[in-house]
Amino acid sequence: MKILDSFLSLFKAPLSKGISRPSNGYHFSTINKSLTLRHVDVGSCNGCEIEIASAFNPIYDAGRFGVALTASPRHADGLLVTGVVTQNMVDPLIKTFDATPNPKIVIACGDCAISGNLFKNGYGVKGPVSEVLNVDVSIMGCPPHPIDIVDTLRAIADPK
């Protein structure tokens, strides 16, 4: 454990989370030590996906903080959105958001999701996630390092 921690501290990047707008009714008291997320790819290049997968692998193991990914938004406490929102994914994103029970959190993962990055005014692009939903937490990076992802998710799941 300690070895892993020191290993992690080598890569420690600046913490990149910030509450951007009034939350979607997300309470720390509810999501305490247990955070289940539904990952939504709204137009990502799959770089973020690879890093998310890494964040849950045995090396970074986000699972040890009670974080898990789930298949159904009904089971989720929030959405982990990657990529710039394309026109075709606007509706599914909103539907997924609606299908998630309150209280819930929206995490924009990666620069595309936060700002649109390279694709900002591209063809068929709606814009960053914040144009569609209220984003609570953002994870910066293109793609974000797994440690950043783990760190952010840990800060949400276990805020003490």
Partner: peptide, 14 residues
């Protein structure tokens, strides 16, 4: 004690 009536989850499709 909250209950919300929603559409069935169809994986975001229409």
């Amino acid at each position: 004690r909250k209950l919300r009536i929603v559409d069935s989850w169809g994986c975001g499709s229409n």
